[in-house]
Structure formats: structure tokens, C-alpha cells
């Protein structure tokens, strides 16, 4: 809109007289574009939070699936089995509403015990005002943070199930003799789990986990479906046709914006590939695997 001028370059004060590269320099640094660039940070933040959280979920799930206590084992196995055979996007759409309603229902039970009306009234989901999340009186940023946290939790649950599956396999791949040796040294099951199994399982888990990381990177545009203002949202918003009432009128440029997103993701996957390859080399060091053996031979 008019009046919203970028202040990065001094010559940007009157966009209507600009031409050529100066026009582009001003256009790409105006207020809305600056906001859009922060959404790349949103994606990175999502990756940075989701990866460790879902790894923790996965670890808990895999450990539970190995447990000697039957109900705990069933929970772990059910968690890993739930994501098989069903499109993940269905989970993404399902969990966001389900989690939202679950939180509101819990708060409703705690905060409004005297409430008599049923919560599901036909096709409406009604809780008392004090139980609404976020409160209708809270500022805009609270709504945004709440939406983002729901998205992170959803990602963590779904990817945690994948990670649980990978880690479960990795724990079983650790040579049995190692565990027997630990037992022979008189370690308790807990000690041998933490001191022998866990440090050794990572090299077996790494191919699966790196695959998972790639999938997680490629799943981040789904944030858009969950209602977060992410890079896809901005690409559609900024790329759409801008008429003469705007400071920087242009035709429909969404194609170029999505092309930029494509390049961004290709770059991200390429960098991840390189980093993961280095990590594999590091973790292979001294392991009784063909990779570790090859490194030992090369050094000797």
C-alpha cells in the first residue's frame, strides 16, 4: 500500500520514479518483504525445535516398545504403528484440531466445574470463555505463538513416531555380543542400556535419521496448511498481482516467488546432505561396521 516505503536505501522515498535495478533493490527491501524474510527464520526455528523434540519422542517410543512391562510396550508399539499406512497430511490436519480441542477440554474441566451444557452441541465445540485457548482478549502475538506451538507439537508427534521406528531398529542392530559382554561384567540392564546400547546405536540409526531429517525439511511447507504465516504464505501474498494502488505495482509473479522457494529448499537439502555425510564419517570411527572397517584400513 502507499505510504509503506522501505528505508534501507535513501533513493527509495518515491518508488514511482524508480527504474531498473534500483526499483528491484527498493522492492525487495520494502516492509512486507522484510517481514517475509523473517518467515525463513520461522522455518528454521521449526526445524531447530522439532528435530530434538521428535528425537526425544522417538527415543521414548522406542524405549517403551522394548520395555518388559507389557502395557508400556503396547503403548510404544502402538505409537510407532500408528503412522504406517495413513497419509501424514491427514495426521497433520487431524492433530491440530484434536490437540486444540483436547487442551480446551482439559482447561474447561479445571476452570469451569459448574458448567452444565454439553461441550459438543451438534456441530459446535463450546467451552466456557475462561477455558478458551488462547483467551479471546489476548494480543495477536499470543495467537500466533499458540498456533506455531500447536504446529511444532504436531510435527513432533508425527516425526517422533518415525524416529521411534528408526531408533527401535537401531537398538536391535547393536551386536548382541556387546550386550552380553556388558552383562558378563555385571552391569544391570539399566547400566548396559545407557553405557553400551545407547552410545553404539547412533551409527545404525543415522541412515534412517538422516532420511528423516530430509523428510522433515521437505515437510516444513505444510506449516502453511496449519495456518502459520510461513514462506509459502508470503510467496502467495507477495507474488500475487499488485495493481496501481500499490507502491510497487507488478503482474502475477507468484511463479518467480515459488521458484525462489524451490531453490531455497534445494540448497537446504544439499547442505544437509553434505553435513550428514561428514557426520556419518565421524560416527563410523572405530565401529564394527564395514564403514568403520574401511576407515581403519585406510588409517593403517
Amino acid at each position: 500500500m502507499r505510504g509503506e516505503t522501505g528505508a534501507i536505501f535513501s533513493y527509495c522515498t518515491d518508488p514511482s520514479v524508480l527504474e531498473g535495478w534500483r526499483w528491484f533493490a527498493c522492492y525487495l527491501t520494502n516492509g512486507k518483504h522484510m517481514l517475509a524474510y523473517t518467515s525463513f527464520g520461522t522455518v528454521m526455528l521449526l526445524l531447530a525445535i522439532t528435530a530434538p523434540v521428535s528425537l526425544a519422542f522417538g527415543f521414548a517410543g522406542a524405549t517403551a516398545a522394548r520395555s518388559r512391562i507389557a502395557p508400556l510396550r503396547w503403548v510404544g508399539q502402538g505409537y510407532t504403528a500408528i503412522v504406517r499406512g495413513v497419509p501424514d497430511i491427514a495426521f497433520f490436519l487431524f492433530f491440530v484440531i484434536a490437540l486444540d480441542q483436547a487442551f480446551e477440554w482439559l482447561r474447561h474441566q479445571v476452570k469451569c466445574p459448574g458448567w452444565d451444557d454439553p461441550i459438543r452441541q451438534g456441530s459446535d465445540f463450546v467451552v466456557c470463555d475462561a477455558a478458551k485457548l488462547p483467551l479471546s482478549s489476548s494480543p495477536q502475538w499470543v495467537h500466533e505463538v499458540y498456533g506455531f506451538s500447536l504446529a511444532v507439537l504436531t510435527f513432533a508427534i508425527v516425526f517422533g513416531a518415525f524416529a521411534a521406528n528408526v531408533l527401535f531398529g537401531a537398538m536391535r542392530a547393536v551386536p548382541r555380543a556387546q550386550m552380553e559382554t556388558a552383562e558378563a561384567y555385571g552391569m544391570t540392564p539399566r547400566q548396559s542400556f545407557w553405557r553400551v546400547l545407547v552410545p553404539q546405536m547412533w551409527i545404525f540409526a543415522l541412515p534412517g535419521l538422516s532420511n528423516l531429517w530430509m523428510i522433515l525439511v521437505k515437510a516444513t511447507p505444510l506449516l502453511f496448511l496449519l495456518g502459520v504465516e510461513d514462506i509459502v504464505y508470503w510467496a502467495r501474498e507477495l507474488g500475487g498481482m499488485k495493481g496501481a494502488v500499490f507502491d510497487y505495482p507488478h503482474p502475477d509473479w507468484r511463479l518467480w516467488y515459488f521458484l525462489a522457494l524451490l531453490v531455497f529448499y534445494l540448497g537446504l537439502t544439499r547442505v544437509s546432505e553434505i553435513v550428514l555425510e561428514r557426520l556419518t564419517r565421524r560416527l563410523s570411527h572405530g565401529q564394527a561396521t564395514s564403514g568403520g572397517e574401511a576407515m581403519r584400513r585406510a588409517a593403517a
Binding site: 502453511f224 509459502v232 507474488g239 502475477d252 511463479l255 522457494l261 524451490l262 529448499y265 534445494l266
Partner: peptide, 22 residues
């Protein structure tokens, strides 16, 4: 292979649609 495996299908759909509209 790199372009189609390295980018999200979601973005590919958007990109293709915008290209086809043009």
C-alpha cells in the same frame, strides 16, 4: 532426480500450477 527429490512436493505443485496458469 536432485530437483524433484530435493524439494517438497508441496512447492512443486504450487510452482507447476503457477507456471500452467501463465
Amino acid at each position: 532426480v536432485f530437483v524433484f527429490r530435493g524439494s517438497p512436493l508441496f512447492i512443486q505443485f504450487f510452482l507447476a500450477y503457477e507456471a500452467f496458469v501463465l
